[in-house]
């Protein structure tokens, strides 16, 4: 991770991004923050995990350091490393170290994707020690009260060799996210896209119909994000069936036969 991307990862939101609570997750998150407990968020793709963290960071007035984990992300990418320039070597903090040093939320998205050595770093930070040892510089940073570690993952993906180890999982306060209730999802879709209530309702009916076929016909259920995308296309004047094909159906499967079958469900709701 280069210096520029670390700078981009830091985000101090000014406006609070809208978020509709589906349960008591806001209260739990606030209490976890007050009691200096790390939080784990699990849920399917596009159900609002990242939006929730952004919302909470703004609400608590904390800077947010987001790191999207990938399979080559190592501990050094989080902690920091020595770089070399014309005058010699110098140390740069990684996003995790920055968050510990200055206080703020460090959000590791899809944490199971990261390499195994990252869990060692996270363990010392996520129990009551709350320290970040940096062996390269010999520093041991103690996390201030404002620091908070938030990780998320999607239990729906079935990686053969990946999964969160129980020893890691048990250090976190866990919030399970699902898809919102139909009524509140209609509101979310309508607010996010500016679409009329009636069409938003049809889109949510479609989403729930498609979710029922997940596991059997689809690898993963369509998330709210997908539906909001379709709603934005329709609000911009796109034909609903065309919008659903482009923003929903083709995103869910690559098999032509399944796509045709999904379009039958779309036609059952948007057909004329």
């Amino acid at each position: 991770m280069t210096v520029t991307s670390i700078a981009r990862a830091l985000r101090v939101p000014k406006l609070i991004p809208p978020y509709t609570a589906t349960g008591d997750e806001i209260a739990v998150f606030e209490l976890a923050h007050r009691n200096r407990l790390p939080v784990l968020i699990k849920g399917p793709t596009g159900c609002g995990k990242t939006r929730f963290v952004e919302h909470m960071a703004a609400r608590l007035g904390l800077p947010l350091y987001t790191v999207s984990c990938h399979d080559d992300l190592s501990a050094a990418d989080l902690v920091g490393r020595h770089l070399i320039d014309a005058s010699g070597t110098y140390w740069t903090d990684g996003p995790l170290t920055q968050a510990v040093r200055h206080g703020g939320i460090c959000y590791l998205d899809e944490v199971v994707e990261a390499r195994k050595d990252t869990t060692v770093v996270l363990h010392a930070l996520s129990d009551d020690r709350r320290i970040l040892p940096i062996d390269r510089t010999g520093e041991i940073l103690e996390a201030p009260p404002e620091f908070m570690l938030v990780v998320s993952y999607n239990p729906g993906y079935q990686h053969l060799l990946k999964g969160l180890k129980p020893s890691t999982r048990q250090r976190f306060v866990s919030l399970a996210f699902g898809f919102p209730e139909a009524a509140s999802e209609i509101d979310i879709v309508a607010t996010e896209s500016g679409l009329d209530h009636e069409t938003a309702k049809r889109l949510v009916t479609l989403a729930n119909a498609l979710r029922r076929t997940a596991d059997h016909d689809l690898e993963e259920a369509p998330g709210t994000r997908l539906i909001v995308d379709a709603a934005k296309l329709i609000a911009a004047g796109c034909d609903p069936q065309v919008a659903c094909r482009a923003a929903v159906v083709e995103c869910l499967s690559d098999e032509p036969e399944i796509c045709r079958a999904l379009m039958v469900v779309v036609a059952a709701i948007f057909g004329r």
Partner: peptide
């Protein structure tokens, strides 16, 4: 038809 049946 089977997918529609499950979807509904």
């Amino acid at each position: 038809a089977a997918l529609l049946y499950r979807a509904l």
